[in-house]
């Protein structure tokens, strides 16, 4: 009995260790000085210097990327949620033909490889003059996150007790009123879950951002991190610092809301 527990603890430790170690190493790198980063062989300890954070903010305009990421991911989350709530309500509650087809095609959209729509989406944005604009990136993101939002919310809406809605309708609320007065508040945890997942998606997306945001003023964090350039070799310290900044909000989300994320991901069993 004792032994099996020990083994179990060991495995757990290894899993946690392997999950965190690479990233901890990277965070550690961001706290080194230039000499420590380029030491051969590598030095384990960092001197806790904030030099790279300063230089990414001052020289590489890190906050600018953060701002763009917040705008794009924030707007995507709001718009996607709004549309998803409407659609999910329909799919969960109202009578409609071809619901299966609609759900199925949404699922299909969520599996589209980016490359198979990238060219045309780029062309559409070009003809609208929306390359290098926030809406130019937000719109594809909304499209790609809608399936995720709708799937999660439909699941949550279905589980809500119908009685409250019926009561509200007897009180004289129409459908729309019932939706935002009763369903939305009740499903708040579900909506929050969907919000987290959509936000993470939009925060992390790279492919479309690479094609559409070529102007530095509008580039998001992943683009900034991928395209960091340096003088002689890659500025690993700065990359690590920017990466840490990009990841910290997500790590916080994960630690505070891991239950929701887990339920959101497994509820649909569909990332959508």
């Amino acid at each position: 009995m004792k032994l099996s527990k020990l083994i179990f603890c060991g495995i757990t430790f290894v899993i946690v260790f392997m999950s965190l170690l690479p990233f901890v190493w990277f965070v550690n790198t961001s706290l080194k000085t230039q000499a420590e980063v380029t030491a051969i062989p590598p030095k384990l300890a960092s001197s806790g210097s904030l030099h790279f954070y300063r230089s990414t903010i001052e020289e590489h305009d890190l906050l600018h990327y953060v701002k763009n990421s917040v705008i794009v991911a924030g707007a995507t989350t709001c718009i996607t949620l709004f549309i998803s709530i409407l659609s999910a309500y329909v799919l969960a509650r109202l009578r409609l033909k071809y619901k299966g087809v609609i759900m199925g095609s949404l699922l299909l959209v969520s599996m589209f490889p980016q490359i198979s729509i990238a060219g045309p989406v780029w062309k559409i944005m070009q003809s609208l003059g929306w390359l290098n604009t926030y809406q130019g990136l937000i719109i594809p993101y909304v499209t790609l996150t809608l399936p995720l939002g709708i799937w999660i919310l439909t699941g949550f809406f279905r589980e809500l007790p119908k009685e409250l809605e019926d009561a509200a309708r007897i009180d004289g609320c129409n459908r729309i009123q019932t939706l935002y007065k009763i369903v939305v508040p009740l499903a708040a945890p579900g909506i929050f879950t969907a919000a987290i997942l959509v936000f993470i998606y939009a925060w992390n997306e790279f492919f479309f951002a690479l094609l559409i945001m070529t102007q530095r003023k509008f580039q998001t964090l992943p683009i900034g991190i991928a395209l960091f350039q340096g003088q002689y070799t890659l500025p690993w310290g700065e990359i690590a610092a920017a990466s840490t900044v990009a990841t910290v909000p997500l790590v916080l989300l994960v630690f505070f809301f891991q239950k929701r994320i887990v339920s959101g991901l497994s509820a649909g069993a569909v990332k959508g």
């Binding site: 946690v16 990233f23 925060w203 992943p222 990359i239 790590v251 887990v262």
Partner: peptide, 22 residues
């Protein structure tokens, strides 16, 4: 433990790519 395991999933792919590259 669950949160720790979720960390890699939440990290932007670009960040994890730079990390492994380093």
């Amino acid at each position: 433990v669950r949160a720790a395991i979720l960390v890699p999933w939440a990290i932007p792919t670009v960040v994890s790519a730079q990390m492994w590259r380093f």
